[in-house]
């Protein structure tokens, strides 16, 4: 479904991604863990082309997307993204946030868009908050609206960039619940997170990244209980209590 082949990325002198390759099957939920600065966010952004890789290929459904002739906007409709800082549009209500893409990108009429948006907001548990502005919502609610907004595009896969890292602890649960439900429904997802509980429960595979390379790959059990690499062991022991 999503395949990444030998991705390299430099930011100036900094070699952020040093040849990343992996594959995600349809319906899989994989989790990427690793220390900050390892390039996880950059990797995600290479998949939906918010960042262009210097070399390497990105394949979505067998189609190489990081080449001339492919419109970035098309790519981003195939793959939805949820950000660490939510990035809701502050001047729009929750429902307007969701309908913006529906109306302007998908071309739905206003009424159809509102209808679809209401269904999505109900799905993430925020039906009564449809008319609230982001500033009136808690962090967890904002992130759930962001998820609904991304889902509105009917993406084939979803990318989550540390979705709960900016949340107060009491709100993390509600967002993880939505993501878990999504995974169980069969959505292909790549999640960058520090939430190991979520990783153990939901992920079919876990990738450990450090300094721009994938160090180790395996099931939750393999990575957490029997890590093969030294760096993996060091990182996991710091994260798990």
């Amino acid at each position: 479904m999503i395949r990444v082949n030998n991705i390299q990325k430099h930011f100036g002198a900094l070699h952020v991604l040093r040849g990343i390759s992996f594959e995600v099957q349809k319906g899989e939920a994989i989790v990427i863990i690793g220390p900050s600065g390892s390039g996880k966010s950059t990797l995600l952004r290479c998949i939906n082309l918010l960042v262009e890789p210097d070399s390497g290929q990105v394949f979505i459904d067998g189609v190489q997307v990081n080449r001339r002739g492919i419109r970035h906007e098309w790519v981003r409709q195939q793959v939805g993204m949820v950000f660490q800082s939510f990035n809701l549009f502050t001047h729009l209500t929750a429902i307007d946030n969701v309908t913006l893409g529906l109306i302007r990108v998908k071309g739905l009429t206003h009424d159809k868009a509102v209808e679809k948006a209401r269904v999505l907001l109900a799905r993430v548990g925020l039906a009564p908050k449809a008319n609230s502005y982001p500033a009136e919502l808690s962090g967890g609610q904002q992130q759930r609206v962001a998820i609904a907004r991304a889902l509105a595009m009917d993406p084939k896969a979803m990318l989550f960039d540390e979705p709960t890292s900016a949340l107060d602890p009491e709100y993390i649960r509600e967002v993880l619940d939505v993501m878990t439900a999504l995974a169980r429904e069969g959505m292909t997802m790549i999640v960058v997170t520090h939430e190991m509980g979520f990783a153990s429960n939901v992920a079919s595979r876990i990738l450990f990244m450090d300094a721009g390379k994938v160090i180790e790959e395996g099931t939750a059990d393999q990575i957490f209980q029997h890590p093969k690499e030294e760096r993996t062991r060091a990182f996991v022991s710091k994260i798990l209590r």
């Binding site: 939906n48 981003r76 950000f83 990108v105």
Partner: peptide, 30 residues
């Protein structure tokens, strides 16, 4: 206007001028 919202607009598939018109300019104006 927080830069992240520009990214989010892109991630939704909005074209640059759409992002300008629906995300940046309304907030700049306000």
């Amino acid at each position: 206007v927080p830069k992240g919202q520009v990214e989010a607009a892109q991630a939704l598939g909005l074209r640059p001028w759409q992002g300008m018109r629906h995300v940046i300019l309304p907030q700049t104006f306000r």
